[in-house]
Amino acid sequence: MSAKLLVIGIDAATWTVIDKNIDSLPTFKKLKKEAKNKALILDQKPYSAPCWTSMFTGLKEEEHKHHEFVVDNILQTREDINANFIWDILTRRKKKVKALNIPFIVPPYNFNIDFKVPGAGVGTTTKEWNGEIKEVTKKSVEILRKEDLDLFIVCYTILDKIQHLHWGEEIVLEYYKKIDSAIRELTPHGEKLIIISDHGFCSFGEARVQTLPRKTKTGKELKGDHHEEAILITKGINTNINNLRDVFKAIKNEFRN
């Protein structure tokens, strides 16, 4: 049992950390040798909500109009986005699709899966971060072992939060290692593969676009911010992916017939 195409999204994963620590990240090291990989330079502002939405709807931010997780103090939901996502389209074409923990909204969205992620996709403690990696990986493997799917999409959100709070600290690499192990468990279950981040990461003030304030409303000082250089690894994918919207096209092209 497996998925014809496995997409693994890793919020805020950056080559800056991976390349510098490649010997400590055996799965990434192996994938860098065996699969195509590159830095994907975003042509839109590196905000998570619109980036993930563009990736899975194929629409520009000004087309899908989903700019923020919260509008007028109200958490946005799937129903607030007037667009067809790749899972909606492929399901109508009778393809078997499941998606887990997709962070274009908070809490992250699940398609055809009943799941509640620890930390609701905005975890701020080690308990929530460990919980997300463990539960998301467990649920994914459980599904992929049991079912034959056309497409399975799964995302991890924790690196983004850890890097915002701890950029430059050892804990960042610690969690890249955990993500590396999770990918090792998942990749054997996909015939074709896309691993992608919605944006990269850097120290605060280094990025061209500042996405968050240096000091949050609860008084926390943020150490890192989003960068427009995302990671991309593909295996068996023929479509050229040059921006986030191309991910939608690439997936659609895989199921053209």
């Binding site: 701020t124 949050t216 926390k220």
Partner: peptide
């Protein structure tokens, strides 16, 4: 000030909003 400012959210959403504030998203 938004018109819906005075409307209460459920507890789970309230906790999520707190986390978003903590992370600087709001």
């Amino acid at each position: 000030i938004s018109e819906r400012t005075g409307r209460v959210q459920n507890k789970e959403n309230h906790d999520i909003m707190q986390k978003l504030r903590h992370l600087g998203y709001m």
